[in-house]
Each structure stands twice: as structure tokens, then as C-alpha cells.
Amino acid sequence: MNTTDSTNAAERFDFTPLAEESIELDSAVTRLHAQLEQQALDAHLLDLAYTTVDTPVGSLLLAATEAGLVRVAYDIEDHDAVLETLAARVSARILRAPKRLDALAFELDEYFAGTRRAFDVPLDLSLSSGFRQLVQRHLPAIAYGRTETYKQVAESVGSPRAVRAVGSACATNPLPVVVPCHRVLRSDGGLGGYIGGLAAKTALLALEARAH
């Protein structure tokens, strides 16, 4: 045997899967992935589970820790980028595992159908802290179909002059839709900003006005 020959032989053998094997591999990996999701949940190794759901305001990324829902992200936030950030800030032990988000996905369906006015899944507010978290904790107190101004929210949380800080607390809300920062408007009636874009904010307000 001579080494040059064997190198050539190796180079001439193509291990790339043929089309048929690729299809079979994909379906096998999909099946194994589903098993892995369950095994990871059972072993408490899944720090973050996520899924995406289609809604009237576009695809929403939902991510939950064992403690609760930690992130809802709009398409325009770039779901891949959001997952990268979650990997850095929370944990890289992340799998697409819809099961942990089943209850929320169901509640979101009801919400967008106009038959649900509040969410009762557990929340994990660990992505925000201090004043921002204080504001975000207050937001669910704004009733479905109602709105408050940034100024009113500032007053409600006991910092009447912190209007701008309320604005940034709303803008950085890690749980849009579920924590209703869309119900906060400017004092002059303007929409203010929204993490999902103004069209999404308008759509949510219109949905709630209709169903109210």
C-alpha cells in the first residue's frame, strides 16, 4: 500500500449524504429533537425553552425559563438576535421546545380572538430590574381596552417626574403584549413608541377597543 494512493482514494470517496439520505436524516433529527426536548425538561437541563407563534401582529417569539415567561419578541426585533441575547444574558441552554409555552400560546390565541382580557401564565421578570421592573409590574393594572399616559404611569408608581424613565421602561419591556405596554400613550394622545412598531401598537389598541 502506498500513502499517496490511499489519500487519493479517500479524496475520491464522497461521504456527503445523497438527497434521499438527507431527507431521512432531517426527519430522524426532527424526531430525536422532540425526544430531546422532553428529556431536557425532565432533567431540568433546559434553562430556556422557546417557540414562535403566528399572530395578527406577526410572528411572536416566546421564551420561558423554569420560573416563567421571560421574553416575548416581535419579528422586527429579529428572533435570532433575541435568542443570541438571551443566550448571553440568561443561559445558552436553549432549545426550541414548544411544550413549555403551550399554555401561553393558547391564551394568546384567545386574546387575539378577543375572548381573553388578561394573561395568567407565570412571568419571569429577571430581564429587567429597578425602576423599569417596577413600571412593568404596574402595567398589567391598566385594564384591557383602557389606556394611561406615560405621566399617569409615572404618578402611579410614585415617581411623578420620571415620565421619560417610564417611557424607556415601556420601550424595554421584555414581555410586550402580555405585559401591556401598548396601553401607554403620550399625554397629547400621540401613540408614543412601541417595541413592535407603531402598526402593531395600533392593531392591539384597535383589537381591545373592538372587543371591549
Binding site: 438527507s22 436524516l25 433529527v29 430531546l36 443570541e84 443566550a87 448571553a88 436553549i94 432549545l95
Partner: peptide, 19 residues
């Protein structure tokens, strides 16, 4: 920055299964 583990499954799942 370490990518989400999901990405590792997507990128290497098939190759590891072949191994």
C-alpha cells in the same frame, strides 16, 4: 458570545447521527 444550544443541534445533529 456562545450561540443558543438549539443552533448546535441544527448544525451538527445530522452529522452526529451519521457518526
Amino acid at each position: 458570545m456562545k450561540p443558543p444550544f438549539e443552533k448546535m443541534v441544527a448544525e451538527h445533529g445530522a452529522a452526529v447521527l451519521r457518526v
